[in-house]
């Protein structure tokens, strides 16, 4: 039996055990997985055929959530890579900026939610600001490290052939920094998910997070569990897509010796 089948078999086994356990325990806090699945179908897959069976809740809550998550992450990626690469190529600039960056990175992003709430009001802007501020630092600091890693010989080679500035940045510095940048992107993607939920728990009446909150207030446990499971699946899917993309982008690397993102942060 190959490993793949083995691991999903164990997974399925655990789900069955959970089903049986919850069936015996009959605790309202812990609904049976089938009940959760049913709730999920009711929530998100009960729409008409012409919407591919997707319910309105998908369009009102799930997609906007994903949109904000990806939007915030993308904005942070652009800013973080641009500033990070620029700082990484200048030791002097980094000496000036280093301590400030270290401090800003240490601020738990949710602590600034009140500030963003005031400045941007409740809504998409405030949520984006929370996500961007929260996930910017891993991307930025990893980009700095990556841009620093261009060795002297590569710099001198580029200088000798008088390659234009654009080719230097896009053709040398960015590819050299890419492994590190991807490590930062991976870390910040999971962080985006966290901050998306945080911002939705305070800042809106739409989104997966606010649906969770509604379910809690109404003591609707199956719906709440369904929301949690959806977030898990979402996180897994996003990470898988990013990994596939990373593998393609870094296919030139000798060995795929990808260390877990946590090691590289």
């Amino acid at each position: 039996m190959n490993r793949f089948a083995q691991r999903w078999l164990v997974f399925a086994g655990l789900v069955v055990a959970w089903e049986l356990g919850t069936w015996f325990a009959d605790d309202p806090f812990f609904p049976r997985p089938t009940v959760i699945a049913d709730a999920a179908r009711g929530l998100w897959l009960s729409g008409p055929v012409d919407q591919l069976y997707l319910s309105d809740a998908v369009f009102q809550h799930v997609l906007p959530s994903i949109g904000r998550l990806l939007g915030g992450w993308a904005i942070a990626a652009v800013i973080g890579v641009a500033i990070g690469v620029a700082l990484g190529r200048s030791a002097t600039a980094m000496q000036y900026a280093g301590p400030v960056l270290t401090f800003l990175r240490s601020v738990p992003p949710p602590a600034l939610v009140p500030v963003f709430l005031l400045v941007f009001n409740v809504g998409t802007q405030m949520q984006l600001a929370t996500i961007v501020f929260g996930v910017l630092w891993p991307i930025l600091l990893n980009s700095v490290d990556g841009a620093r890693s261009v060795d002297t010989t590569k710099y001198e080679t580029s200088a000798v052939f008088r390659i234009p500035k654009a080719q230097w940045v896009l053709g040398v510095v960015l590819p050299a920094a890419a492994p590190k940048i991807f490590a930062g992107l991976r870390v910040s993607l999971s962080l985006s998910l966290v901050l998306m939920v945080v911002s939705e728990l305070v800042g809106t009446d739409n989104g997966i997070g606010s649906q969770l909150l509604v379910a809690q207030r109404e003591f609707d446990f199956p719906d709440m569990w369904a929301g949690i499971v959806l977030l898990g699946i979402l996180g897994y899917a996003l990470n898988t897509v990013l990994l596939a993309f990373e593998r393609r982008a870094l296919s030139w690397q000798p060995k795929r010796e990808r260390t877990p993102a946590t090691v590289e942060d």
């Binding site: 060795d151 010989t153 690397q253 000798p254």
Partner: peptide, 21 residues
């Protein structure tokens, strides 16, 4: 600064090649 029409083969050849190309 680096003049036109000049090429260098560096001693550290392995580093002077770009691994992603």
């Amino acid at each position: 600064g680096v003049p036109e029409d000049l090429a260098v083969v560096f001693q550290d050849y392995s580093r002077s090649l770009f691994p992603w190309l």
